[in-house]
Amino acid sequence: MLSGASDKLEILLVEDNPGDIRLIVETLKEGRKDYNINVVKDGEEAVNYLLKRDSHKSAATPDIILLDLKLPRKDGIEVLKEIKGDESLKSIPVIVLTSSNADDDIANAYKNHANCYITKPIDLDKFVVTIQSIEDFWFTIIKTSKKK
């Protein structure tokens, strides 16, 4: 619906926890559409990927970004600031998906123009339902701007 009928939605997942990566990727694989999901495991690599630096020269610009906050090397808020401060990246929706429930983190994420903030549920089934809600809302009914 968002991108042309021919190409798949490009998703960038920025997450260091292997269990969470697996759960998110598998839930989306069983989802209603085919997605191209790319995973980067720290904040530095996320920025390199988005700016197509180093080993990411041929990286696809994502249609949407799922961003953890607690990340090695560069934390999620720093990554968010770089995305929202970059003319060519700022229109990509960023969904913050984190274990943090702290008011400070929530406020800080919205202040830096996160498109939404979601706390990862501890319960596994609820986590899956949350991923499916993201899929239903962001990957299905939301318009993203396709910038290539």
Partner: peptide, 20 residues
């Protein structure tokens, strides 16, 4: 609207999401 221009402009102005 579902024009690319409006979608883009909305996100540039930090809309949280755009629904047609």
């Amino acid at each position: 609207s579902d024009s690319e221009k409006d979608v883009m402009k909305s996100y540039d102005l930090h809309a949280n999401c755009f629904v047609t």
